[in-house]
Design a binder for these strands. Structure first.
Length: 285
DNA sequence: TCTCAGGGGCGAT
DNA sequence: ATCGCCCCTGAG
C-alpha cells in the first residue's frame, strides 16, 4: 500500500454518495471498480491515506486525476459560499469533493440511473458487473470490474434486461456501440461545452440531466450541475426559481450565481437536501 | 399486499 | 412545448 497525505477530503461522502455507483466500504476500506482496475483506499491518521490499484499496481497518475487532487479546494469553497443554504449543506458534508470518473463507465452508469433511486442503481450495476465484468480477487475478496464497453455493446438485450435494467437495456447497448464507433471519449476532449452537450444528447437514454451528470462527474465541468428531482426542489423551494423555467435558463442562472462553480455547490446541496438532516429550512427571499 | 416514487427520457400529440 | 408511459426496486 502506498501512503499519501490528502487534507480536507471527505472520502466517505464523496465515494459513497450520489456521484459514483462503484464503491463499497468493506472491513474499514473503500474498494472501487472501473473498467480496468480495482482501487483500494484505507484511511489513516492525520490526513493519511493508504492506497493501491489492481491488477496493475501504483497507478498514482490515475488516482490523482480520479480524485481531482490538483484543484484549489479552498478557493472553490470560498466561491460557492454564497448563502445560508450552501453553508448548511457544507456543514452536512464537510470536505465533500467531486470526482473525475472514466467517461465510458460514467456515461453507461448514468443511462441506467434515469428514473431510478440511488440504491436501485447500485443494485442493478452490481448485477451487471457480476455477470459481465471481469473478476478480480484482492484481500481474499472477490470483486467484479465494470463491464468493458465492447462487452455491453455485444450483450444481448434480453441478458441486460435480466439485470433489471428494464427499458434502459436497449439504450445502454446502443450507446455502448456508439461510444466505440465514434471513439466519443477522445472526440469530446477537443470540443467546447456546447458541442460536447450536443454530442452527448445524440445518445439514446441521455437528456439534459444525464448529459450534465456526465460532464460534471467525468469531464470535469465546474460550471453546471445536474437538475434532477432534488436539484429542482432545491432551486424552486429554497432559491425561489420558477418551476416552469427552462432547463437551459436555470443552467445559466446557476453559472452566474455560483460564479462558474455550480458543480460544487450543486453537489453539496444535493447531498444535503436529499438527506434526513435538513429540516425546517426557509427559502431565500 | 398494496401504493408510490425514484439523480428522466422517449415518442406521440 | 406538453404529456402519458415506461421496467423494476426499495420504502412505507
Amino acid at each position: 500500500m502506498n501512503k499519501l497525505i490528502v487534507p480536507n477530503y471527505n472520502f466517505h461522502q464523496t465515494l459513497m454518495g450520489g456521484q459514483a455507483f462503484n464503491w463499497e466500504f468493506i472491513d474499514g476500506a473503500f474498494y472501487g471498480t472501473t473498467q480496468d482496475r480495482l482501487i483500494k483506499i484505507q484511511l489513516g491518521e492525520n490526513d493519511e491515506i493508504f492506497w493501491q490499484t489492481y491488477p496493475k499496481n501504483n497507478e498514482y497518475d490515475f488516482l490523482k486525476q480520479y480524485l481531482r487532487l490538483d484543484i484549489n479546494y479552498e478557493e472553490i469553497l470560498n466561491k460557492i459560499k454564497k448563502d445560508k443554504h450552501v453553508e448548511a449543506a457544507m456543514e452536512h458534508s464537510p470536505n465533500l469533493r467531486l470526482l473525475q470518473q472514466d467517461f465510458d463507465q460514467t456515461t453507461l452508469s448514468f443511462i441506467i440511473s434515469s428514473f431510478n433511486s440511488i440504491k436501485s442503481i447500485k443494485t442493478r450495476i452490481n448485477r451487471m458487473k457480476r455477470d459481465l465484468g471481469e473478476k478480480i480477487t484482492v484481500d481474499d475478496k472477490d470483486f467484479y470490474l465494470f463491464p468493458k464497453t465492447e462487452v455491453i455493446a455485444d450483450a444481448r438485450v434480453e441478458l441486460l434486461q435480466a439485470h433489471s435494467l428494464g427499458y434502459r437495456a436497449k439504450y445502454i447497448k446502443e450507446a455502448a456501440n456508439i461510444l466505440l464507433r465514434e471513439d466519443l471519449g477522445n472526440k469530446l476532449a477537443s470540443l467546447d461545452e456546447e458541442s460536447t452537450r450536443a454530442e452527448l444528447l445524440k445518445l439514446p437514454g441521455i437528456g439534459d440531466k444525464v448529459a450534465d451528470c456526465i460532464m460534471v462527474f467525468s469531464l470535469g465541468y465546474n460550471n453546471l450541475t445536474p437538475l434532477d428531482v432534488w436539484g429542482k426542489r432545491v432551486f424552486t423551494d429554497l432559491y425561489r426559481l420558477d418551476s416552469n423555467m427552462k432547463y437551459d435558463d436555470v443552467r445559466k442562472w446557476l453559472n452566474d450565481y455560483f460564479e462558474g462553480h455550480a458543480a460544487w455547490a450543486g453537489q453539496f446541496l444535493f447531498e444535503w437536501y436529499r438527506s434526513k438532516d435538513r429540516k425546517n429550512v426557509s427559502p431565500i427571499v
